[in-house]
Write a protein that binds this DNA or RNA. Structure first.
Lengths: 235, 235, 235, 235
DNA sequence: AATGAATGAGTATTCATTCAT
DNA sequence: AATGAATGAATACTCATTCAT
């Protein structure tokens, strides 16, 4: 996950910080430790980052923007394109496809999206762990985890929402649904990543099986409780 | 949640520590702060606790033993009693009741148990938060969260398992099930408590509605994915 | 050296303090430790002693008075008696005996005195160690070691000097002699006791041999460099 | 002994520590005091030394290595050179010189060595005091004083012994001799340094006289009890 | 871009001592 | 005579951060 002999000191710092923050937590990690692990002079850290907090901010920002990017890419590359060529119509929170083939194409891409999300989350589980950590504390990053939730909410500043361009106010996301989605879908996904290594140590399961479990559980859950109904309008 | 003018200094210390640990995290909380909040001389903390870690340990221990107690009480008071009077037979992980009335009685008690678990978790959400916090860090308490999981596992040292006295080796808990149960049942329950206040602040939902959501979501989930099937053997 | 089940708490405190002070030094020993080792409540120490310093003072005082007592006893029981019955005349620092028998009697008692001093020093080596310790520090007890030296000095407040009743001003103790006596006689005696256990650990010598070495070295030295010449006036 | 305005902070720390440790003892000296006396920020002490103990270790190490160096220098510069040019033969612990002149040269150098040892000991009496102090306590430095003793022992890892290249197993150091040498030669030498200032305060002797006393007493003792006999083989 | 030295405020912990009972 | 609880000041040590070069 981390090349042994990295060149860029800034990257070395970020990698060292990621490892340490995710193992011992932000507060229990000293700048000295980061410097030692990154094989970098302590003062150099302050050349690249304004303070210790900025390192954490940098890590969390990069995670957040990656997740946003993945979600937006799916919305753009899949939904928008299909909406433009008329093979998909989104209405009142439901998806109407022009043909079975269109729906199959959508489903395939949706599954690929699920896999990408799970993979990305697991690959970057150290930062995910840090994110969970910080979202449990009061402070600047407390709300980070909730921003994932916002991806599902019907708010004007939600880029996914914007992309879909759905305007109905009677969107069927109501409070209970959001609650359920957050605690039984997002939280498990994030937790699987955060507790991955510990769970593996306890269960002695292989990486392959664990990833399979994670993907299947997540997909099963998403499908069962899917808020969006898919229909084919083709006669 | 905390009486304004407590007498026992040791309790004052524990309450202050609970509040601070759950707000800022263990590592970011100073013993000075605890002393100040508990209105206690700093050295007195070391009279009652060997060190800062021991305060944390005391909090987590009391949480763990309460959860164990609740679970065992349910197993003892409900399952054992019914098993003894013959109104319930547990076999191959399934529950066979002598009558509809017996099953109804069981279901009622089960729901009461669910409610008790959810209530206890929410009432003690500060410590639950601390527990989640610490289980994300490497160290002594990392495994605490996983001990909840063990309550569901088929191991000889599991007191619940012992109580049920189920001996079949082909018990239908297999790896995927345990994984699913942990990440889609325990983790959500714990997370609802841990993120309760933050979620409330974001959603502006009343305590009543949130608790209702929590209980319903948890019960719905537990029932849907219930591992134990319930049957009535009555002709 | 220390009875296992002592009754008197004050004695238990003194013994515990002796052991700890001699092992780790006064400053590195906590009142808590003393209380624990003495199996006594910490506050009780302050019932018997004004403060920690008073424990040390008590130990050193008892050592000093014992040494004084031994020396005075020798002077009284031996020299005074012989001086009174005319079998010994002390003049200008030299000892003139009335007969060979008188001198032999004196020598025998002198050797017994040497043995008693060495034995007492070794038996109480823990306190001797403490004394050396404290005499190396600035402070109240710095001068304790030097009070041994004063036993040899020609000062009006020297009880030994008083006992001998020697009045000559040209007493042949001059500065170099006192210096030599102190550093090559008193200091070795005290050091043998202070380093006894450590030396034994290094050399693997038995208690018997070590005590024999100590006594012989000390006697040889005392005799060789004896300032007091012994004469027989008998024709 | 200490320049008023030193530049190197590390040296300032060492000098301040030396003064304080030798006055009040290691345990009674606070790091705060050292910092204040050295006019240095407290944290800087921990920049240069791992902990308080390391300061002490540094002081004792430098003393030990100096003493070793002085002794080795004498052995190398004097004995080795004479042994190589044939003017000195060492056999069975005795020294045989080719000529009176050779012996005189040796004696002169030996006396210079004595003087150097005494001078060094007195000049560095603060550290010597600390060494005595620590060798009375259990712990890391307890054995330091005994290492001086080892300089006289016939062990393969003794550098002096190696240099002399004496191989006879019947070397006349036996247990009693080592005991005597240690307690009546090394201990007095060390004690003279350790108690120098206190003795001076009591005796009101000038530095010159005290140093003269010290040197003479030491030389007299060393010569009287010299283990090595000196002979001239010249006809 | 990089570093060794330096710092003030803070950390957890221990101290000798006192008090009420 | 004895004790559990309490305390203010001090302890050794660490922190994130800065500065001069």
């Amino acid at each position: 996950m981390k090349p042994p002999n990295e060149q860029d000191p800034k990257l070395r710092i970020l990698h060292a910080a990621t490892a340490l923050f995710s193992q011992k937590g932000y507060d229990a990690t000293g700048v000295n430790e980061i410097a030692k692990k990154a094989k970098v002079n302590k003062a150099l850290i302050y050349y690249y980052f304004e303070n210790k907090e900025a390192i954490l901010g940098s890590l969390i920002d990069s995670l957040m923007s990656s997740v946003y990017a993945i979600t937006l890419a799916f919305a753009n590359d899949c939904i928008d394109v299909m909406a433009e060529d008329g093979s998909l119509v989104v209405e009142e929170g439901a998806f109407f496809f022009a043909s079975h083939k269109a729906m199959e194409g959508f489903t395939t891409k949706l599954h690929a999206y699920y896999k990408e999300v799970v993979d990305y989350t697991l690959d970057n589980r150290a930062i995910v762990r840090i994110l969970m950590f910080e979202s449990l504390k009061g402070g600047k990053h407390q709300s980070s985890l909730f921003r994932f939730m916002e991806l599902m909410e019907k708010k004007p500043d939600n880029p996914l929402y914007k992309t879909l361009g759905i305007g109905q106010q009677d969107f069927n996301y109501h409070e209970a649904t959001v609650f359920y989605e957050f605690f039984f879908s997002i939280i498990p996904l994030v937790s699987i990543a955060a507790y991955y290594d510990e769970y593996q140590a306890k269960s002695h399961l292989s990486d392959e099986r664990l990833r399979e479990f994670a993907l299947r559980s997540y997909m099963a859950h998403a499908e069962t409780n899917s808020l969006r109904k898919l229909f084919v309008t083709e006669s």
